[in-house]
Design a protein around this nucleic acid. Structure first.
Lengths: 121, 121
DNA sequence: CTTCCGATTTAGAATTATTCTAAATCGGCC
DNA sequence: GGCCGATTTAGAATAATTCTAAATCGGAAG
């Protein structure tokens, strides 16, 4: 844990809105923290490697980063662009619903959903 | 359906191994079909827009294209790199397993899995 | 058959997220 | 204080994709 990695992590924790690497970079600059964009990428990599954060990809858009360590998936509200973490229902294995070949072992799984949420009332 | 779109589609049908745009381009060249890479991209877009093919993204790798029109997900065997189409079990809605907010409407859903398959015996 | 027109194709330039490079800096340890 | 491997850094490089503007196509209308 270097100074820079801690700063990147802190920014992610402060606002858990799935920012891109560039978002993180700009937030750190705004806080007068002189960090290089390359370092932001390095730090995000390092944090992800140690399982502290997750890299989230919607299609081919810039990667976003998520501090939620629990297994979950992502839902983007098409209207607002907000990305919501969605948990699995109690005791559910998504792979139970799939016709996986016998003996297949899942090591990584990413599920992203786009859709609409009813307007807040 | 233009000549080029048909050619792109034919190449995809001939070898359903989830090629990238560049793979498609090279296959067409090999068949002496003089097509531009930009056109391959255009055609893939047009075909995807009309629901004939699907764009498949694994992390931030180059997009791959899939001619399977049925709802399904993708599993990549980490050992061989081969991408397999995985169907849902009969009558299963993946969204039934998720704690989606009330009234959420899913319009797109992408699930990619990486893992290992037992070696063929 | 020719003309016209919008859509498509094309080559090449541009874009952009990310990675790479090589030098500078850091922090811990002797 | 001096050394060393790891990290940071600025800037260049990379690579998938998109954009641009001109050329071409193919069908409809005359």
């Amino acid at each position: 844990m270097t100074k820079q990695r801690r700063e990147v992590y802190t920014v992610l924790m402060k606002n858990r809105d799935h920012p891109t690497a560039n978002d993180v970079f700009r937030r750190l600059q705004r806080e007068m923290s002189a960090i290089s964009l390359a370092t932001v990428y390095n730090c995000l990599d390092a944090l992800a490697e140690h399982g502290l954060i997750n890299q989230v990809n919607f299609d081919r858009e810039p990667s976003r980063f998520c501090v939620n360590p629990a297994p979950h998936v992502h839902f983007r509200d098409a209207r607002t662009g907000v990305i919501h973490d969605i948990n699995f229902k109690e005791g559910c294995q998504i792979t139970d619903l799939l016709e996986l070949p016998d003996g297949a072992e899942v090591s990584e799984l990413e599920l992203t959903i786009s859709g609409d949420l009813p307007a807040q009332t």
